[in-house]
Write a protein that binds this DNA or RNA. Structure first.
Lengths: 257, 257
DNA sequence: CCCCGCCGTTCCACAACGTGGAACAATTCG
DNA sequence: CGAATTGTTCCACGTTGTGGAACGGCGGGG
């Protein structure tokens, strides 16, 4: 049995060489390639020379492509790996999401947490896709989205501090919660109810409900959500989907963990 | 300017710690999770205790999920990263592939090399999708597919030895080229013509043409292909698509590198 | 039922490898 | 054209990874 890091409260600091490599790789993978060396070093929280050396290794193996002059983008080998990971999702995941979509009739998303953001990994469109700005690989702020609030709600207080310290609470719409204490109140509510609502807080005229995906030790790894156009689905109606969403989250946690 | 590793003929051996980590990560990402420790260590070409330690680090950071008892699968963090890499493909790639699909009217694939195999990363279905056994993330042998032969044709002889030594030339259909010297002849032909044909060598009643994706230094990173059902598209017709496929490959190389 | 072989896990002495501050070179910007 | 920023190289130090060997547990075959 592996010693079970358990609560693992460590917030930052690299330490391990392999871990640094992972963080650099993650930084290179972020949308908006190519990225500059300094940017990657900062994102990964790794000293510049170390980042440089690590990226050199990555480049040699084709995992990243060096545009020359300190610009790096995902390489063929990383793209191939990504395709394998994304494609090998057992059919189960899509099945659960599709069933949820049928139940509620609106667009369904699955997003997984990566540091101070969540990333869409799956999407099942509504019957009549109105207009969807979302896309696989797109990331969401944690403080202004239903899925994000689900994640935050199940983190330790110190971790919430870390996330908000790094990412802030940017105002995305007039309804965005930009005060820390109001957010804390909301998160307590989310924990109590077992789901979160985004009432046009992230994107105007979009309302969502989401339920958290918790692993065996209760740590949040992501969430499932249902999104509707605001003037078609009211606040109460979106909230009425909560039971179905929670049920789907349950099934997905079993599949993914 | 980075020293340009240039020809870099190194075949195996790990050496660098970061490189070992990459190979382990790649092994975990292969289809058919969860994978056993011994299997991963073997695939990655890393001593068992090292693989164990590295996987432990991965697990701590959520990049892999440990099912306990030496079984490992891609974790949430890796899935999120994969989604970002797969989704951030600039629209350009799909555009080129779609245009090619329109020109030829058949299913178009983009695959990238990963070690001794190639992995589908993009796919544009034919107008009337007959039946397609392919899927994003699925991998192809290099010796029996059009894309694979494109890759092999542009590798150094030593590297071809390495690949075939590791993967062999398994018979997939009656038409598969299973003799090394016949394959070498074919590869020379591919180099000469600039494209490769798979005449039901990988899957019965499927014919393909493919052109290689070469990076700036002429190394093959993958290929584009057009696939047709054998009794709808004859050997000559599939070969007649070569110019369009080569042109698409040219455009894609510019986009991806 | 017991034995044997395979696999996951732990251990540890050794030194190789990564480390990152500082100096240097190349760009970019005003 | 000069100043500020960024990419790159260097190197002395000791932390960290290394992997062969040994151990215990699980499972399959005799």
């Amino acid at each position: 049995m592996t010693a079970e890091t358990g609560g693992n409260g460590r917030s930052s600091s690299a330490g391990n060489a392999v871990e640094k490599a992972l963080r650099v790789l993650e930084a290179v993978s972020m949308p908006g390639a190519p990225h500059r060396l300094a940017e990657i070093a900062a994102t990964a929280g790794v000293p510049k020379p170390s980042a440089h050396r690590i990226l050199g290794t990555f480049a040699d193996r084709g995992f990243v492509h060096s545009h020359g002059g300190g610009r790096y983008a995902p390489g063929p080998r990383l793209r191939a790996m990504a395709a394998q990971v994304a494609g090998d999702d057992d059919r189960g995941v899509d099945q659960v999401l599709t069933e949820l979509q049928r139940q509620v009739g609106h667009t369904v998303h699955l997003a997984l947490r990566a540091g101070d953001r969540a990333v869409y990994t799956h999407k099942v469109e509504a019957d009549q896709p109105f207009r969807t700005s979302s896309r696989i690989g797109m990331w969401l702020p944690l403080h202004s989205t239903a899925i994000g609030k689900c994640v935050l709600a199940h983190l330790g207080a110190g971790e919430v501090d870390d996330v908000l310290g790094a990412a802030g609470q940017a105002r995305r719409t007039p309804a965005t919660i930009t005060e820390r204490d109001r957010l804390d109140t909301e998160l307590a509510e989310v924990r109590r109810r077992g789901y979160a609502v985004d009432d046009e807080e992230n994107e105007p005229s979009i309302r969502c409900v989401a339920a958290p995906l918790l692993d065996a030790s209760g740590r949040p790894v992501g969430g499932v959500s249902v999104s509707g156009v605001a003037f078609l689905v009211g606040r109460e109606q979106i909230e009425s989907f909560a039971p179905e969403v929670r049920h789907a989250a349950q099934s997905l946690a079993a599949l993914l963990l």
